[in-house]
Simulated assay, not measured.
Amino acid sequence: MRYSKTTNLILCAVFAAITAVTSGLVIPLPFTPVPMTLATLSVMLTGGFLGSKYGSVSMIVYVLLGCFGAPVFSGYTGGLDKLVGPTGGYLIGYILTAFITGIIIEKINKKNSLY
């Protein structure tokens, strides 16, 4: 289904907010400084529902919010130090994960389409 650009941008904001909420639920792991969260699930759902373009835009919004200090990262923290710390690679990976998940879903939908 095609949506207007405004609707897509609103959905980007909603999925960025869902990722922020699921990032706050933390299971600390004693052997690593990177905790386990439900954010990976929401990142893949974002790519699956919004597609590659808007899914990655949503995750860029999420990462930028956290960089500017909004408490959206694991344990409801934020700041640029999280992006350059041990969790930084995971946070950048959210953008790539949403993009790749969106591409996979788009290819599956294109393959199974009757039109």
Score class of each variant (00 low, 15 high):
I108N: 00
V57K: 03
T6H: 01
V21R: 02
L45W: 03
V84L: 11
G55V: 08
G85W: 01
V57N: 00
L65G: 12
L29Q: 13
L38Y: 09
P86W: 07
T40H: 08
V84I: 15
Y62I: 08
P30R: 07
V61K: 08
A70T: 06
S4R: 09
T22V: 12
L64R: 04
P35W: 04
L91M: 02
L25S: 00
S58N: 06
T22S: 01
L29F: 13
V84H: 05
G24K: 07
P33S: 02
L25D: 00
T77M: 03
Y90S: 09
R2E: 15
G88C: 14
R2Q: 12
I18Y: 07
S74I: 04
N8L: 15
K107I: 08
M59W: 11
L96K: 03
I103K: 15
Y3N: 11
L11P: 01
E106Y: 05
L114K: 05
T40N: 13
G79Y: 01
G79I: 01
I18H: 05
L41S: 03
L83V: 13
S74N: 11
L64N: 02
P30S: 02
L45Y: 02
G93L: 06
I104S: 00
V14A: 13
G24S: 06
L29V: 14
N112D: 11
K110G: 07
P86E: 06
T32A: 10
V63A: 11
P30W: 02
I108Q: 01
V26F: 01
P35Y: 04
Y54E: 10
F31L: 08
T22W: 03
S56L: 10
A39P: 06
Y94C: 07
F49D: 04
I92D: 01
I18Q: 07
G85I: 02
I60V: 14
N112M: 15
A20G: 11
S52D: 11
S74T: 10
L29Y: 08
G93C: 11
A39L: 10
L38F: 12
T77F: 00
V43A: 10
S74R: 00
I60E: 07
E106D: 10
M44V: 15
L41D: 00
T46F: 07
G88R: 08
A17P: 00
I18R: 04
T19D: 02
L45M: 12
L64I: 08
V43T: 14
A98D: 15
V21G: 03
A16E: 12
G93S: 14
L50F: 07
Y115S: 12
I105E: 03
F15N: 09
G79V: 02
C67V: 10
K82M: 07
G88D: 12
L65Y: 09
G69M: 05
A98C: 12
I10S: 02
I95N: 03
